[in-house]
Nucleic acid binder design. Sequence first.
DNA 1: GCCGTTTTCGGCCCGACTGTTTTCAGTCG
Length: 577
Amino acid sequence: MKNQELAQIFYEIAEFLEMEGVAFKPYAYQKAAITLENLKEDVEEIYRTGGRKALEEIPGVGKSIAQKIEEYLKTGKIKYYQELKEKTPVKIDELTAIEGVGPKMVKVLYQKLGIKNLKDLEKAAKEHKIAPLFGFGEKTEKNILQGIAFLKRSKGRFLLGEILPIVKEIEEKLKELKEVKRVSVAGSVRRRKETIGDVDFLVTTDNPQKVMDFFVSLPGVIKVWGKGLTKSSIRMKEGFDVDLRVVPEECYGSALQYFTGSKEHNIATRKIAISKGLKLNEYGVFRNKKKIAGKTEEEVYEALGMAWMPPEIREDRGEVELSLKGKKYLPRLIELKDIKGDLHCHSKWDGGANSILEMAQAAIERGYQYLGISDHTKFLKIEHGLDERKLSLQRKEIEKINRDFEKSGVKFRILQGAETNILNDGSIDIKDEALKKLDYAIAGIHSSFKMSKEKMTERIIRAMKNPYIKIISHPTGRILKKRDEYQVDFEKILRAAKEFNVFLEINSYPERLDLNDINAKKAVEMGVKLVINTDSHHKDQLRYIEFGVYQARRGWVEKENVVNTWSLQRLLEYLKS
DNA sequence: GCCGTTTTCGGCCCGACTGTTTTCAGTCG
């Protein structure tokens, strides 16, 4: 789909325009980019069937942007964009990816020092050429270096959310090939890790030549290397690498186990093998020279006296010991089908893409029993946060839709929440009288991220003490590849969550996934209740729930730990109590 | 550049925080 490519271009145009100090246009381009990014329909298809007129029907797309989309679809280029790039030939997306660096800074850095990309910037900062610049200083230079260091730490890794859809496509294509007998993705993708270095596929086949030829000519491949009959590597246009390995049928299980990892899990399992006088490698389980298992993963684990376990927990965090004791000691991980509703979604009321009804219909399509609309509140002006009056107006709309559902026999209920803001002193930006009228309230940190650990912990705990606050959203505040967690004493937060009966969120947004696996596991061990939400700003984002569930599974979370696996009735009773 | 149950022109993108430039511009959510 061309949607993503166009979105990327419009984001960049917005930044170039912002760099030049153009007013309002950047916002318009950004809006259009966001819409395109989330659009389900293929923009090419829209254009083919309805022409430029149909493009203009897309929200945020008017005459000018429609014309540019048309130009891109016809020629693969946008002249306006090319001109902007020629005028200031900088890698603007690369530079503004650094925390604290925006378009204006990029402009000065280019004009004064000729900085065009990350490399130039790092060099200049290390040579202390930034600090003396007018408007910059020691601190800024240091922040830039730190920002670059952080970017590098996460560089070369991709979000699971970006990669998984493409991986599934590749897997489907391989499956369709009749020469392929068995195929599976392995590695960190199979373990559903939040970020991925590269992708590993395993196949069995009688015709490796054919399979490899097919593999290296998949659509989207921009580079091929090491092509052989047992292993070939490709790079996809999105920038990540994929390895394909052909393994013998009788080794498929052990190869899958080996290449799924994690490395730590494999080390632990090999130790078990040694302790039993066995040897484990990617070709099988061996007693002396005799192979005793290898065809399936189950039989490999069985040969080691272990129960098979889901890939998500293979991190050597205790799963090896439990699986030795037996299957019933392993956690029964939550599954996608257990989810009965979503309690953190945004609507048009706070600038989200869809109306409450549209969001509800999308939830019904997913088979949910309920959906919680929790728009931002007034402190977040940019997000069109709702004040007490608007919350009460919104309540009326929700009640009306619920009545209509009831009349037409639709077994579904919209709940009214709100994603309130925890102010610096831990108070909430909405009055208690208004919170009281909601079905529940969420509280989250959206400002002042750089507090001391003590202050931040105090701040969140004070919010949890508010009897109307039932959920803490994205509890650690991290943004993958962008921003670290804020400083907080998580143990204390867990104790408070338990004491005040507050649910901690696992935010399913691919760049958040917050709580992460480790924190989720701690929460489960402490008996803290969790809720897996999507934080959807668009109805199509409800599908992100998948990623929240994966993260939960990585954190050993079971169905019973998660309140939105409960029926509507049970949830309502609990909220009331 | 987009949009319209206040408007086809005139709004929209606000407020906190940071660092630096001593009075505020740039960045972020």
